[in-house]
Amino acid sequence: MSETIGYILLTVGIVFDVLGCIGLVRLPDVYNRLQAGTKCVTLGTAAILLSVLFFTGFNAISVKALLCIWFILITSPTAAHAISRAAHRSGIRLWKGSVLDRYAEDREGAEDKP
């Protein structure tokens, strides 16, 4: 029974990983790639790590897997935030089909003042 749940979680995790990587290849600019990659790969890897709990039972391996889920859920969005901010500050423009960019407007306004 618990092995079945483990296989289901493992399949869901791998499918989301593959989807995230397809997004990484297909989408047009850095920010959209970061969206697809961060969300899908984070949840996919968390599901794979959770499936360890159902395969091995409650022991040293699964406790470490749960801690690893916690670390990934904290660190992955923070890294995405840092990379997107650095990309914007180093002058990478948004994709040409983008609608609006309030951040660039506000930053240019702030740089003109002093």
Partner: peptide, 26 residues
């Protein structure tokens, strides 16, 4: 919210026409 977001991204990625409309809001 996280599970919904994954299906949302999956729908956008697998669609042939890439239905995205990106921008930075405040």
């Amino acid at each position: 919210a996280m599970i919904r977001s994954n299906f949302d991204v999956a729908y956008r990625v697998l669609n042939i026409y890439l239905p995205i409309n990106p921008g930075i809001v405040k």
